[in-house]
Design a protein around this nucleic acid. Structure first.
Lengths: 358, 358
DNA sequence: CTGAAAGCGCTTACAG
DNA sequence: CTGAAAGCGCTTACAG
């Protein structure tokens, strides 16, 4: 009856409890699930048996028989970036509140097969559903990934499917910050882009759109790696070009690297060149100069994605509706099935009017 | 046969495959587990049935019957901090390499009951084992948490149990950086501490030890929150005291906040006061001035903790040993059951000799 | 090489 | 209120 675990230790099962308590397994099970239809006497005995045996029901067995595993599987690429990290925190806290556990899997690479593999591994656990972060960073059509059965939610830079999606409105953010820079008097704005396929780089698209709409000169975007060191190198190069008076970097880390590179070459920020970032990294306000950026509500995005997911599951629906009405009603997008989370411009000191001609 | 999922979609089971392929469930199972003792003809038929039904075995059922769930449960407090984040990344990548999935749970608060609850939830999944990050940040005796059955590994600031433990050697690091500051000529070093119980604040203990051993004046440590804004406030206060020429902050974010506060009051770093951090945050080198700090190998700590855990499990032991000999042999501590990971002093520009008297 | 049977730890009708 | 039975989706001896 007492089985071995991987560790070699014995594990106690419901049978052990039943035997010790002198009741049937059914009764123990009933006791475990609310205690209805179990006599007070039995309850005492069972409680005691559980206590002395230190019994805990197997979540695995339960999930199997109930055909519902109260776990949310999150698959994410770029897991070490700020966005995914903060979103994971949000997912975790909201999942805990709603009684779900978290499973995470990050694909080995960005290739389709690896992602599909992660998605499948996630699905094999028979989770409540899958939260897929940044599918749009992948060089594939997003919907290709979802012949997968079961509920899911994607967190994307921009609405692409119109359902089961939390969008961070990256394009809008890119546009806003570029416009802001232009409004300061800059002739144009250069862009140092995060390494994401151009078709899915919404921040870049917003930047381009702002330039187009204002009839500004559109320089080639400069593709950067994730490492701020790459941005630093780019900053050194950009410092050589006096036409560069304003740069929008794809994220704050890159902006910081960029500023270092600019300074390496004697440029002052923002006096000689204005630099803006994206995300509002927790340290952005402490930088010298403080970084002008777009604040992204990543934690909230994570939390909302949990609610969006659970909303698809009958057993979890009732208490979700109250949440919908309460917290996120105002911003609900296309339908209750998707959500736009808008970034907010945060103006600090890394940006300013262009240097007057000497 | 085809059951409903939480989503309401049908799920295909091994029975469906067996029926469609016209073989027994046993044969399908054998096919799934290596294909030995299955005739080529059957293999074809089974393969085809799986293909057309898009069948995937239930990880849950497998885990139940095999009595081993290839998942590692990680429970962590302070999950949004740099260390835990990077370690999680390391755990994740190493777990993937070794064929294990990851479950994470973070206690709602630091209180014993919440932590115990997380630990239990983790154990209920019957995972391969539990990796517990920073149990020593908790106001409890660590070993109290482990009447839990099953394999586990703790990642701590300092060896406390002597087994199943990856230590980051925080005390040593605190000592090294304090000594470095003293070697620069500072009379003493102030400490802005992370909000961790004093008994378990190894960085602080290292700092104190260095001061004691050199007979330096030992100022009261200044307890700070996790928010760099708190450190900024402290920096402003410290700026008022001209005796403060060197400060060691409990981590880099705090050091950055501190520098901001010092500057708010007109102090120059390092000319007026030297500031050192801890961790070697990815942005530390880009700060102006670059932060002198202790580099911590968090990612490696995460990876090693996976190996340490798997080493306790018979089914995973063979290929671990090669790893032991290969990668981490040199640094193996007390035994193969625990490991010290030493931080490294990184000298940048935020520290220097004390200001000469004017 | 193959299938029927028993069992993993639990839950859920079903009869008392 | 209670227990015996069937079943969740799989695997693993056990007989052929």
């Amino acid at each position: 009856m007492a089985k071995m675990r991987a560790s070699g230790k014995k594990s106690v099962s419901i049978k052990d409890v039943a035997k010790l308590a002198g009741v049937s397994v059914s009764s123990v099970s009933r006791y475990l699930n609310g205690g209805s239809n179990v006599s007070p006497v039995s309850q005492k005995k069972i409680a005691q048996a559980i206590e002395t045996l230190n019994y805990r029901p197997s979540a695995l067995a339960r999930a199997l028989v109930r055909e519902i595993n109260p776990a949310i599987a999150v698959v994410t690429i770029n897991s070490s970036q700020l966005g995914p990290t903060q979103m994971l925190g949000g997912i975790e806290s909201r999942a805990r509140e709603r009684g779900a556990s978290i499973t995470i899997s990050v694909p080995e690479t960005d290739r389709r097969e690896d992602i599909l593999n992660s998605l499948h591994m996630a699905a094999d656990q028979n989770p409540l559903g899958i939260i897929f972060m940044y599918p749009d960073m992948v060089d594939e059509n997003i919907s290709d990934f979802f012949p997968l059965e079961g509920p899911y939610v994607m967190v994307t830079g921009q609405q692409t499917m119109g359902a089961h999606e939390v969008s961070l409105c990256d394009q809008e953010g890119g546009e806003i910050i570029t416009r802001y820079l232009l409004s300061l008097g800059h002739k144009t704005v250069y862009h140092v882009a995060v390494p994401v396929r151009l078709e899915y780089n919404r921040r870049l698209q917003g930047w381009r759109k702002a330039l187009e709409n204002t009839g500004s000169y559109i320089p080639d975007p400069i593709i950067c790696g994730w490492d701020p060191e790459d941005a630093r190198e780019i900053g050194r190069r950009l410092a050589l070009n006096d036409d560069v008076t304003a740069v929008f970097a794809g994220n704050d880390e890159l902006a910081i690297g960029l500023i270092s590179g600019l300074r390496d070459m004697g440029k002052r920020v923002p006096d000689d060149v204005s630099v803006a970032g994206f995300d509002d990294h927790p340290l952005s306000g402490f930088w010298d100069p403080g970084l002008t950026t777009i604040h992204q509500e990543f934690i909230r995005a994570g939390r909302e994605s949990v609610d969006l997911l659970l909303r698809q599951i009958p057993q979890y629906q009732e208490d979700v509706n109250s949440v919908v009405a309460g917290e996120s009603g105002e911003e609900t997008g296309v339908s209750k099935k998707s959500l736009d989370i808008h970034g907010k411009l945060v103006i600090r000191n890394s940006t300013g009017a262009p240097h007057k001609e000497k």
